[in-house]
Nucleic acid binder design. Structure first.
Lengths: 330, 330
DNA sequence: CGAGGTATTGTTAGCGCTAACACATGGCGA
DNA sequence: TCGCCATGTGTTAGCGCTAACAATACCTCG
């Protein structure tokens, strides 16, 4: 008949028991070569595909990993999630993604419950906000979790880019070019990476014994960068480290509008290296994050965790300074 | 004991049969109110959560939808997928996403098999390339499919933005500003939306009886736009319709470098309205796509399809012209 | 030549849920 | 009073797979 064949059908076709079919499918060693080929032929002939739902029920393993992320239309999260899913696929896992509009405790918890119900073997939480990190404390029943780009919690392995180091490198670069001090446009409060970048900036200035100007508050958007740019133009800033590339674009726009030459009068360093940055006017000097490495690392940590390894040191991915045309010496 | 409770545990706790628990959970009408509360209390007390894998096996419905998409780090696909998953969640479905690096027949087919094995109830294919559309012809066994932003196939419902109309509107806008003709930087061959935008551009020029210049070939990247920009500067183009905003950024960069004023000497219209466009220098006039509407529409069509509705007319979402600073009159 | 392996296959019993039917009640009209 | 039906609940069989054990056959070695 026309319905999809099941294992029993294959078994009958090949003249063996369904269990032998299962053995062939699972690469069990103790199957005679001749039997194996016969089963394979039957599978081919019937166009059989194994029912993974039934398999998951029987094995209590779904071979599916869950990913919880915040706003996947942003370049950073999107790239991270992409890196994660590529790595998961490579490792033979399916991926189920929940993309949240806002990260508050309740939403993250719901998302994890949602994934837990679905029977995922583990969860990667892309939780760059402090609020989300808190949720990790009350883990769902027995599902291993890895936190990415965020704050860890007790017993939750962490994978992240070294944002502190990035802030440090960006600021040092500007100081080495001869700027007296470096201003900073930071990301929204509550974002761990924003805070770490700011700390790196402060550390670099402190180490060089320079004045630390009051940082300007941003929210990642170009609009916020634009506003900050207008203020900085008035302040007569000569060097600015901006916490992401989109805001840096806003600064560029503001400076262009006001006739302030970049990098002639002001040097700017961004963060992320979005694909557009290279074609800003001028091309943006920025800090590149290796999202693929973060993805691979998080899956690796998660799989280790699933296999029962207890504590894992946080995996920290180094960022890279990419020098382009938006920075120059005094 | 410490293991997760199953339905039978709840039943015992509430002093009913497991089937009654099932009835309560599924909102079956014929359950006495008092029984219902007793069961609910037991569920609460034990912290019971229903095993969706078992449910899926028994019902042969997973309440999960699959999404196949191309490069979700691009703004367009990312936004589309986001819209789709929001809409799916709203409708009470889980979403499983496969993000492909390249769309060729084989990859798309693999992805669909992968999702099919996982037992999804339906699949949304974000397939903007002609090659992908071909695959839809050989559907997987009985799983409903909806195509998004791409080319349809027989019997596959389609949801897309009206790219032709977008190209038309962009070109008309430039003609109305008094430009003699409009050049075009198109997207990569094989992309249906690129072709539709180009057709819209051609149609507008034809209708106005203007010369149709040879379109320049792009690949969506700012780098391609930059190359096109250098050529167009040489050609002395006064108006350009670029098939996406990233390439338009490349053009802006090229013109800035060459000292060609935008919009003084050249007017530019992009496509997509990425978040950055508003802060380009000058802010980019572009065609906005409503990705959320596409997402909602595709889920709606897919659910209809799952419920057995046979043929559905393609859903076409109108684009919107957003006028900013990159266009002006002659 | 028989005890004790070792490959190879089959049989049985679940995984946790829902569907379908069976079985009690109790109310109502004839 | 009896039969009939609606209402509520329990019982039984799966869904399609794997795990665990059982049952063969075939060796090997002393």
């Amino acid at each position: 008949m026309g319905k999809t064949p099941v294992m029993a059908d294959v078994a009958k076709e090949a003249g063996v028991s369904h269990q032998t079919v299962s053995r062939v499918l699972n690469g069990h060693p103790n199957v005679r070569g001749e039997t194996r080929t016969r089963v394979m032929a039957a599978i081919d002939k019937l166009g059989y595909r194994r029912n993974l739902t039934a398999r998951a029920l029987a094995t209590r393993r779904s071979r599916t990993l869950g990913v919880v992320s915040f706003d996947t239309t942003l370049y950073g999260p999107a790239s991270t999630v992409y890196g994660i899913s590529q790595a998961a696929r490579q490792a033979g896992y399916f991926v189920s993604i929940v993309s949240l509009k806002s990260i508050d405790r309740q939403h993250v918890r719901d998302a994890m419950a949602y994934l837990g119900d679905q029977g995922v073997d583990g969860i990667v939480v892309v939780a760059p906000q402090r609020a989300a990190a808190g949720v990790l404390a009350d883990l769902p029943r027995g599902v291993p979790v890895v936190a990415v780009q965020g704050g860890g919690a007790d017993g939750v392995p962490l994978v992240r880019v070294d944002h502190f180091e990035g802030g440090l490198a960006a600021t040092r670069h500007l100081l080495e070019l001869g700027h007296q001090t470096v201003w900073h446009v930071r990301g929204p409060t509550g974002w761990i990476e924003a805070e770490a970048r700011e700390e790196g900036w402060r550390a670099a200035l402190s180490a060089a014994g320079r004045r630390i100007p009051e940082p300007l508050q941003g929210d990642w958007s170009p609009a916020a960068g634009y506003r900050a740019g207008r203020i900085l133009a008035e302040e007569g800033a000569s060097a600015v480290f901006v916490s992401n590339d989109q805001m840096a674009l806003g600064l560029l726009r503001a400076f262009t509008e006001l006739g302030v030459d970049v990098p002639g009068r002001v040097s700017i360093v961004g963060f992320d290296d979005i694909p557009e940055s290279e074609y800003f006017s001028p091309p943006l000097t920025t800090i590149r994050q290796d999202f693929a490495a973060v993805g691979r690392g998080s899956i690796e940590q998660l799989l280790r965790r699933i296999e029962g390894v207890e504590t894992l040191p946080p995996l920290v991915v180094p960022p890279v300074l990419v020098v382009r045309g938006s920075t120059s010496g005094r």
